[in-house]
Computed example of a mutant assay.
Amino acid sequence: MPKKLMGQRYGKYEERFRVSKPAVGYKSAHLLWPVVNDGCSEIDFPELEWTETIAAFTHPSDCSRQDAFDTGRRWTSWHTSTIEWRPGCVRYFLDGRLVGQSTRGIPDRPMTWVLQNEAALNGDRAAPNSWAQMDIAYVKGWTWG
């Protein structure tokens, strides 16, 4: 990840991606993670298992109920995801279309953008010696203000 996008407070984050080889038991959680881990603040998009549809999640800093937005879109086509994180608001876009917005429990501390691809935490597990592949064409980011 570009260093300029690490530890910043607010910003815009964009990536172009696809899963060219999906397999059961693999997922992504591309997220903004707090520099100082408060145990709950998290902004995730795109997220979920690669055999499911792409979703976005806002996990409030007070650990209250999360906001979840399902795009209904599959991982295997090329997509552009965008997170706009501003004071008091997070907006999620997929291919230029707004898929969700959160206005409660929005983190206000510095966060770092992380592209986390991993074995699925829920549901079916990845088979031994299996593999899957995500392609990322680019990442872009902008600071706030």
Rank of each mutant, 00 (worst) to 15 (best):
M1Q: 10
P2V: 12
K3W: 10
K3I: 07
K4C: 07
K4A: 15
L5D: 03
L5W: 13
M6S: 15
G7Q: 07
Q8E: 07
Q8L: 14
Q8I: 14
R9F: 02
Y10D: 01
E15S: 15
R16A: 09
R18Q: 11
V19N: 00
S20Q: 02
K21N: 13
G25T: 06
G25E: 03
Y26W: 11
A29E: 09
H30Q: 11
L32A: 10
P34V: 02
P34L: 06
P34G: 03
V35A: 05
N37G: 06
G39L: 04
G39I: 12
C40H: 10
C40I: 02
C40E: 08
C40V: 10
S41I: 04
P46K: 01
E47M: 11
E47P: 05
L48D: 15
L48P: 08
E49I: 08
W50S: 10
T51M: 00
E52Q: 15
E52N: 13
E52D: 15
E52H: 13
A55S: 13
A56N: 10
A56D: 09
A56G: 08
H59P: 01
H59I: 05
P60H: 05
P60Q: 10
P60C: 00
P60A: 04
S61F: 14
S61H: 12
D62E: 06
Q66N: 12
D67Y: 04
F69E: 08
D70R: 14
D70W: 11
D70N: 13
G72M: 02
G72E: 03
R73H: 07
W75H: 08
T76F: 00
W78A: 10
H79F: 00
S81Q: 13
P87F: 00
P87G: 10
G88S: 09
V90E: 10
V90G: 07
R91V: 09
Y92C: 06
D95E: 02
D95Y: 01
G100V: 08
S102L: 07
S102I: 09
T103C: 09
R104G: 02
R104V: 04
G105P: 06
I106S: 04
D108L: 00
R109S: 15
R109I: 11
R109C: 14
R109A: 15
R109K: 14
P110C: 05
M111S: 07
M111I: 10
T112G: 11
W113A: 11
L115M: 12
Q116Y: 15
Q116D: 15
E118N: 07
E118P: 03
L121A: 12
L121I: 03
L121G: 15
N122G: 14
N122W: 14
D124I: 05
D124A: 15
R125C: 11
R125T: 13
A126T: 08
A127V: 10
P128C: 07
P128K: 04
S130K: 02
S130I: 01
W131R: 04
Q133C: 09
D135V: 09
D135C: 03
A137C: 03
Y138G: 02
Y138H: 02
V139P: 06
K140T: 00
K140V: 11
G141I: 05
W142E: 06
W142K: 01
T143R: 15
W144M: 12
G145Q: 12
